[in-house]
Design a protein around this nucleic acid. Structure first.
Length: 586
DNA sequence: GCAAGGTGTCATGAG
DNA sequence: ATCTCATGACACCTT
């Protein structure tokens, strides 16, 4: 506080300047050379001075600070992103691919019999894309998923339908008869070609239902051996030829709708971490756009979800805020052009930024726009805003005239306010005041270069003053730049969060679609099978006897006709067809 | 006393 | 060459 007396006495005389110089010389306001090389020194000295000041000074205005603390509200505490559900959903990843591919088969198979039935199955490609997206998330859940799918108890519908296939010696050479006996497994013999080549162990990694690639599917249907498609391999050959009459109820063991639904639901449950209830709800709402959403899947954390939505709203507000901020930025420049000293402008700016809760300018406002305490007193609420960055104030710059010693703390409220406001002044403002800079820091900082230079030329300024002014301008601009930079960063984060939410919604929608496709696929398979059995069952040889499914099979011709051919021939063709795609792949 | 978040400042590079 | 802006890094403060 030794300087305070000096400063108090300091009017405009040379002595004061001398003192100020002494104080500021280390702050970069070197008397002789006010250049960059001094700035480093400036920092160090600032710190020293600050430390010293901390020891010596007891600042008034604690109450005001406390008030400010109470009133400061951070409207934008981090938005926690609801990341819970993705992991659950991902669990399906592996299971999905296996189911997704049959479509290719279906397409080939159905076209002849079921004209007009459209299968949306270049879906496979899309699906693979989707899978790749979900792959990462799926990793951790896969294990459990496979367990569910493959280790299900014998009575489990899934195991009877899916798990059987891998373990059974699958062969395309399946008889119609066998097919009819095949019961539930028929559905899976549909994909037998692929499964056939799989070691039993591989069943743990692949769902029998689904060939690992569409080409294998094509091969299956390329052979167009319908019997092979529908009937379980284990019945093959060794199957009793007595089957003929046993052409069981074509639909008997087949996937009934309930089963299909169950499978779909289980897929969904597995994939999305749905519980059965949710899944069934989903089924009911299939056509609803409300979205089942993963949002619901993390309903437990709907809070976070709502946070997400709020974040989305906030992100929308953030986008608006971004626009606000960008407009703010632009208005910055404009302000710069106009001088940035307009209080109302600044205020508006702050309001515009309120959406993001980003309030850096408040402190700027307090410190930079109001060097004159009386002005600030017009906006008392601003007193609550802003950091107390008194550490920025070089003790040297603290005008002792404005900062009476602690002993004089008991004083009028005006004085207190003045103290507080003085305290709110930035280091540069104090410096500027101490250096008798004849214009405001706002002008220094925000005037366009031309006007700035013009302004400088109007005054007779010492080298030191000019240097300080340049520093003030540089620091001020950089401060705003930093604030904008942080604002942008924040906006970017919010936008990314919103993007993630959008992607999650898309993912949920795609999964819903997948379930729908699977269901329709199975329905079509069912139809095809019944048609096959019906047609085959009505066929009679020259003696009027039915053909044995183990000896004959129906086969599609390229022109859409259906041929009855010996099973051996059909098998050969099937194998040939199976090889083609593989060769092609090589 | 520590951690997290906010802010100002500096250094640096790009336009 | 100079100015301005953006941004990472750092120090310091507040909560």
């Amino acid at each position: 506080m030794g300087w305070e007396s000096h400063l108090t006495a300091a009017s405009a005389d040379i002595d004061l300047i001398d003192i100020l110089w002494r104080q500021d010389i280390d702050l970069g306001a070197g008397r002789e050379i006010f250049d960059y090389s001094h700035r480093q020194k400036e920092q160090d000295v600032d710190k020293e001075l600050r430390d010293g000041a901390e020891q010596e000074d007891t600042w008034p205005g604690e109450g005001a600070e406390a008030l400010a603390r109470n009133l400061l509200v951070d409207g934008e505490t981090g938005e926690s992103f609801p990341a819970q559900f993705p992991a659950d959903i991902s669990s399906i990843t592996e299971a999905v691919p296996s189911e997704s591919e049959p479509p290719g088969l279906q397409n080939n198979l159905l076209s002849p019999l079921l004209t007009g039935t459209e299968s949306p199955f270049d879906l496979e490609q899309q699906w693979q894309d989707l899978m790749s997206i979900m792959e990462m998330q799926a990793m951790e859940v896969n294990t459990s998923t496979s367990e569910v799918l493959y280790n299900a108890p014998p009575g489990d519908p899934l195991s009877t339908n899916y798990s059987l296939a891998p373990n059974t010696p699958i062969n395309q050479n399946v008889s119609l008869h066998q097919a009819s006996l095949g019961g539930c497994s028929q559905d899976f013999s549909l994909f037998s070609p692929e499964v056939e080549s799989l070691p039993v162990a591989s069943s743990s990694t692949l769902l029998p239902l689904v060939p690992s690639n569409s080409t294998s599917l094509n091969s299956t249907f390329g052979s167009t051996n319908l019997a092979g498609l529908f009937f379980p391999p284990q019945l093959n050959g060794t199957a009793n030829d007595t089957a003929g009459p046993e052409l069981p109820d074509p639909l008997g063991g087949l996937l009934d709708e309930a089963m299909l639904d169950e499978i779909s639901l289980m897929d969904l449950a597995i994939e999305e971490g749905f519980n059965p209830v949710q899944a069934s709800q989903l089924e009911e709402e299939f056509d609803s756009d409300s979205g089942l959403s993963l949002d619901s899947s993390h309903s437990p954390s709907s809070l976070s979800s709502s946070e997400g939505s709020s974040s989305s709203s906030s992100s929308s507000s953030s986008s608006s805020s971004s626009s606000a901020s960008s407009s703010a930025s632009s208005s910055f420049s404009e302000e710069g052009a106009v001088g940035y000293s307009s209080d109302s402008e600044t205020l508006d700016l702050e309001e515009a930024e309120g959406a993001v809760g980003y309030q850096p300018e408040y402190s700027k406002f307090c410190r930079m726009s109001y060097q004159d305490p009386s002005q600030l007193s017009c906006l008392p609420y601003l007193e609550h805003v802003g950091h107390n960055h008194t550490y920025n104030m070089a003790p040297s710059a603290l005008d002792s005239a404005d900062l009476p010693p602690p002993s004089t703390l008991k004083k009028g409220s005006k004085e207190k306010q003045a103290d507080f406001l003085d305290k709110q002044m930035s280091r540069d403002e104090h410096r500027a005041r101490a250096m008798k800079i004849p214009f405001t820091n706002d002008k220094i900082i925000n005037l366009p270069v031309e006007e700035f230079n013009e302004l400088l030329s109007k005054y007779q300024l010492s080298e030191a003053q000019l240097s300080l002014i340049r520093d003030i301008r540089r620091r001020g601009k950089n401060k705003m730049a930093a604030q904008n930079c942080r604002k942008r960063k924040l906006d970017t984060i919010l936008n990314l969060e919103r993007d993630v939410e959008d992607l999650q919604r898309d993912k949920a929608r795609l999964l819903r679609e997948k379930v729908e496709f699977l269901r329709s696929l199975r329905q079509m398979k069912q139809k095809v099978q019944s048609l096959y059995q019906e047609v085959f069952g009505r066929l009679r040889d020259e003696n009027g006897r039915p053909y044995s499914p183990s000896q004959y099979a129906l086969q599609y011709a390229g022109d859409g006709s259906v041929l009855l051919i010996p099973r051996t021939l059909a098998d050969q063709q099937a194998r040939r067809q199976e090889r083609k795609p593989k060769d092609r792949r090589k």
